Simulated assay, not measured.
Amino acid sequence: MSFKILDVPTTSISEVKKSPTIIFKKAEKENTPVYVFNRGDVAGVMLTQEQYESLTNEIEVLHEQVMDLVVAQRLAIKDLELFSDEEVRGTNADQFLTIDENDGWE
Rank of each mutant, 00 (worst) to 15 (best):
K17W: 02
R89D: 07
E101Y: 05
P20E: 09
V8P: 00
T91F: 10
I77P: 09
A93L: 05
N57E: 15
D41Y: 04
V88C: 04
F37H: 13
A27P: 01
I5S: 01
E58N: 04
Y35W: 10
G44F: 09
L6T: 07
V36W: 05
I77Q: 14
I13D: 02
E53Y: 10
E64W: 06
R74M: 14
T21N: 09
I77W: 12
L82W: 13
I5H: 00
P9G: 00
T56F: 02
I59N: 12
N92T: 12
D41G: 01
E58P: 01
K17S: 14
E60N: 11
V36T: 06
G40C: 07
F24L: 15
Q73C: 07
L6M: 10
P20I: 13
L62I: 11
E15G: 00
E50Y: 15
R74Q: 14
D41K: 15
S54M: 08
A72V: 04
T10F: 00
H63T: 12
F3E: 09
D79N: 14
S14L: 05
T11C: 07
F37C: 02
G40A: 01
A93V: 05
V70Q: 13
V42H: 03
M46V: 13
G104E: 05
I99Y: 14
N57Y: 11
D103L: 02
I77A: 13
E58R: 10
M67C: 06
T48F: 01
Q65L: 15
T11I: 00
L80A: 10
S54K: 14
E81G: 01
L47P: 01
L69I: 03
M67H: 09
E53F: 11
I77L: 15
T48H: 06
G44R: 02
V66W: 05
S2P: 13
V16N: 02
Y52K: 04
L82S: 13
L80Q: 09
